[in-house]
Structures are given as structure tokens and as C-alpha cells.
Amino acid sequence: MSIFIDENTKVIVQGLTGSQGRFHGLRNRDYGTKVVGGVTPGKGGESVDGIPVFDTVAEAVAATGATASFVAVPPRAAAAAILQAAEAGIALIVCITEHIPAKDEAVVYARLKRDFPGTRLLGPNCPGLISPGKCNIGITAGEIALAGGPVGIVSRSGTLTYQALHELSQQGVGQTTCVGIGGDPVPGTNFIDVLEAFEADPETRAVIMIGEIGGAEEERAAEYIRDHMTKPVVAYIAGVTAPPGRKMGHAGAIVSGSQGTAQAKMDALAAAGVIVAKNPTEAGEKMVEVVRGLP
């Protein structure tokens, strides 16, 4: 099993005719993902490498039966694109767009919560998600993932997710699903949403969680793990050496006052019974040990 997506998931790409959308959308299709359509206003009727393009998400959904959307449009158009997908009944929206204004993200989050509670938004500013061998939506390089489980990965960072996939795959340890929740201040899907899904997924038997400085989501996740998770969790938090008050690349990665430090997050996770690694390589090694010890 996998979470959120599987081999039958039908995906449309909003922005398929743009350079990002085309590049990643076709890569996703090459990986085996059922990419059934694209959406670009004003370009309905065209096609991209055989994939039909529609003017609106509603038309694309009516024609293809898609349930997931990959949003790869520029920041100024992203909020409207996400809401259009939700209005068309899309259940999973994956938005890779970086640099969306914070006010727009806050409005999108509130709209989805109030009007479309059944819709899941992953991101914005996330690498997407991959269930190796089944479906890949977003920018993750499918080659570095290994099918067959038993590890689930959830991460705030793109390249650190790749690093984690690589460490596991090299050791012959496969993944069920790898989910990048993104580095922005208001992510549509948070650690707990993904941990819940992994806990409920029978094929996932252990989880790697990769966090970073800023906010309090890792601390909340620690509480959830302590109270609800039976599966072993290995965690790594980036940004121990980041100085307070400076944004470290991701809009969400900033230590303000005494809040959001890497040490506080690691302490909270360790206290919740999580195996805390001090770098990505160690996280991989510890997970390999965990997997070898599984009954």
C-alpha cells in the first residue's frame, strides 16, 4: 500500500504548457504516473506530447476523471489555481510553486478548510510525493527511490528528502511513500497528517521524519508520535547551527526568539521516543538498523 496516491491515481498538470509543468509533468508520466491531462487557460484543445490540454480544471476533470492535480504555475497565479482545482472536486492538490505571498497562502488555507474540507493540499513549495513503482507527482527524481517498502518518509525539505531516499535505497531498503510537505509557513498538509496516514497504512512499518528550524510543527508531531504512533520513527532536524532571526532559504525556516530551534525540536522528539539522528547519513543508518530489527 501507499498513502494519498497509488498506481490508479489519475493526475492533471495545471501549467502543463509552461516550462516547469511540461518538464516535470512528462517526467512524472515517464515514471509511470497516469498523467491524463493538462490545464492552461486559453490553451484548451492543444496537447503536450499527446496529453490533452483543457482551459479549466472542471473541464479536465469531466473529460478525464482525474482526482489529483499537480500545480506548477507561477506564484502570482498559484492561489487561484489551487482554489480552482478544489472547486472542480480534485481530492489531492500538489503545489510545487515557490515564493507564493504569505497572505495568499493564508487565504487558500482558510478557504480549503472552510469550503473544501475533503481536499488535501500538499505544499506549496514542496517537492511532491512519490510512491515508488506506482506514482510520482512533483519533482522528485524517481530513479533514487526503491519500491516495496517498508519505510515511509515525510520531509519539509526537497534535497534532504532525496538524500534520505538515496541513503535507504543504497542499503536496499525500499519506501512505501515519500511525502515532501514543503518549507513554507502555511503548508496545506503537515507532519501529523502524514504520520497519521503512515500509522494507518499496513505496508509502512517505520517512518523517517525530516524537519528543520522554524515554527512548532515538529514539536506537535512529537506529541502525536508519543500518544498515537506504534511504528518506529527516526528523525533528523536541519539547522542546528542556523543563527536566530535569519531566514535560511525556506520562508518557514527561521528561528524567532527562543522558538523553533533545532535543539528544542530534537529534545521534544527524543522525549517522545523517536530515534533522533544528528545528520542525514546517520538517519539512514539508524533506519537500516530499525528495518533489520523488524519482526
Binding site: 525539505s157 528543520e212 533528523y236 547551527t241 535560511m248 532559504g249 533545532a262 545528520n279
Partner: peptide, 22 residues
């Protein structure tokens, strides 16, 4: 990538170095 860059700072620090930048 921001995560890998942050992580690189941490690892340099762990092995006894000090980062000049992110």
C-alpha cells in the same frame, strides 16, 4: 536546496569546522 544547505552547515560544525555562509 535550503534543507541540504542548512544540513551541510550542521555537518561541517559536527566535524570541527565552522561555516562562513549559507
Amino acid at each position: 536546496g535550503a534543507g541540504l544547505a542548512m544540513s551541510t552547515l550542521d555537518v561541517v560544525n559536527q566535524v570541527g569546522g565552522s561555516a562562513a555562509n549559507f
